[in-house]
Computed example of a mutant assay.
Amino acid sequence: MRTDERGAGPALPSRTLGRSGVRVTALGFGAAAVAGMYEAVGEDEAASAVEAAWDAGIRYFDTAPHYGLGLSERRLGAALRAMPREEFTLSTKVGRVLVPYDGGGEDRAAGFAVPATHRRMWDFSADGVRRSLEDSLTRLGLDRVDLVLLHDPDDHEDQAFREAYPALEELRSQGVVRAIGAGMNQSRMLARFLADTDVDAVLCAGRYTLLEQGALDALLPAAEAAGKSVIIGGVFNSGLLADPEQGARYDYAAAPEDVLRRAVRMREITESQGVPLRAAALRFPFGHPAVASVLVGARSAHQVRDAAEQFHRSVPDTVWQALRAQDLLAGGVPVPGRRVP
């Protein structure tokens, strides 16, 4: 559907990633879920989720080849091609190259309910970075992405710094991409990227949430000192903070009982203050000034609209005070004010 046939969505606050000039809305759309993460998602449902994000004012969209073996990029690109390109920011990732595979079956072992048509091959070489980006642009059907992130180089640290990062820096200097960085589920190596390279931003998933704040030790202070930006993914810790019930996931697996009990107690406290746990979880990262955006993964239009509603809720100071009083939030952890960031 063309954007001029639909009403404009409500404005969301936006911030610039470091000194790159690339702006992201404070609430971003993570496109792993629409690629069948954990359970299958139909084409129409995925398209409706992206349209709902646009209508909610979201203008930052994140994807990766890893998500659904390229399905996320294909679906996101198909939905965004109808939108004015200058009005949205798009990020994808490099480090995994997709190689055709005819062994059949599904990609369940990697967490996606899609046919296993390809294999993921780790490749943090300079050629691998360039090939991955070219393949991503083909799947997206777009002429450019704005931000490219090295994806999960945990076991490839030396090559990532020695080969992959310089390749990204060259692409940025050539104007092929506007901003570069890294995205991981840990904070240690991301802090090294901030200290040892000229990245514009990093994406930290699951390590700065209402449940855990490991990124506060080094990553976030380093980003603030360097004038760089941090994008927060996994703000619901794989869904636990969205719905802390038995069987909920935490860090991509079943939540341990002690972690589940902690999340349930958090929900009791926030709801006693009239605030859904989802709203507190979404707003929490903005207590730190280095945080530019929070990504929310949604598989349906309903989930997108709920995320936008929770994002705009006012979270009174009494919520944070009550969490601190029950030793569920440390005294030195920064918290946001009442206003939307």
Rank of each mutant, 00 (worst) to 15 (best):
Phe161Asn: 03
Ser187Lys: 06
Ala160Tyr: 01
Gly181Leu: 09
Gly175Thr: 06
Phe161Met: 07
Ser187Ala: 14
Asp152Ser: 03
Gln159Thr: 14
Met189Thr: 10
Gln186Tyr: 14
Arg192Ile: 08
Arg192Ser: 09
Arg178Phe: 10
Gly175Phe: 06
Asp155His: 14
Arg172Leu: 09
His156Asn: 11
Gln186Met: 14
Leu168Asn: 01
Gly175Val: 10
Glu169Thr: 15
Arg188Trp: 13
Glu163Lys: 05
Arg192Ala: 04
Gly183Cys: 04
Ala179Ile: 02
Asn185Met: 07
Arg178Glu: 05
Gly175Cys: 04
Ser173Met: 12
Ala160Met: 04
Arg188Ser: 11
Leu194Pro: 00
Ala160Asp: 00
Gly183Pro: 04
Leu168Phe: 02
Val176Leu: 15
Asp152Trp: 01
Gln159Cys: 10
Asp154Gly: 09
Ala164Asn: 06
His156Arg: 09
Asn185Arg: 10
Tyr165Val: 08
Ala179Tyr: 00
Glu157Leu: 15
Gln159Phe: 09
Val176Lys: 12
Asp152Leu: 02
Glu157Ile: 13
Gln174Cys: 14
Gln159Val: 05
Leu171Ser: 01
Glu163Asp: 06
Phe193Ile: 06
Leu194Tyr: 00
Ser187Arg: 08
Arg162Pro: 14
Ala167Met: 13
Gly175Pro: 09
Glu169His: 11
Ala164Gly: 12
Ala182Gly: 05
Val177Met: 10
Asn185Ala: 08
His156Lys: 11
Ala182Trp: 05
Gln186Asp: 11
Glu170Cys: 10
Asp154Arg: 07
Glu163Thr: 07
Glu170Pro: 11
Glu169Met: 12
Arg188His: 11
Arg188Phe: 14
Arg178Tyr: 10
Leu190Thr: 04
Asp155Thr: 15
Gln174Gly: 12
His156Ile: 13
Phe161Ile: 03
Arg192Asn: 10
Arg178Gly: 05
Pro166Gln: 12
Ala167His: 10
Asn185Phe: 09
Leu168Thr: 01
Arg192Trp: 06
Met189Phe: 08
His156Val: 06
Arg188Val: 09
Pro153Ala: 02
Pro166Gly: 08
Leu190Val: 07
Ala160Trp: 03
Ala164Lys: 02
Ala164Arg: 01
Leu168Ile: 01
Pro166Met: 09
Asn185Cys: 06
Arg188Thr: 07
Glu163Ser: 07
Phe161Val: 05
Ala164Val: 08
Leu168Gly: 00
Arg178Val: 04
Ala167Thr: 12
Arg188Leu: 12
Asp158Tyr: 13
Arg172Asp: 12
Arg188Ala: 09
Glu163Arg: 08
Ala179Val: 03
Ser187Asp: 09
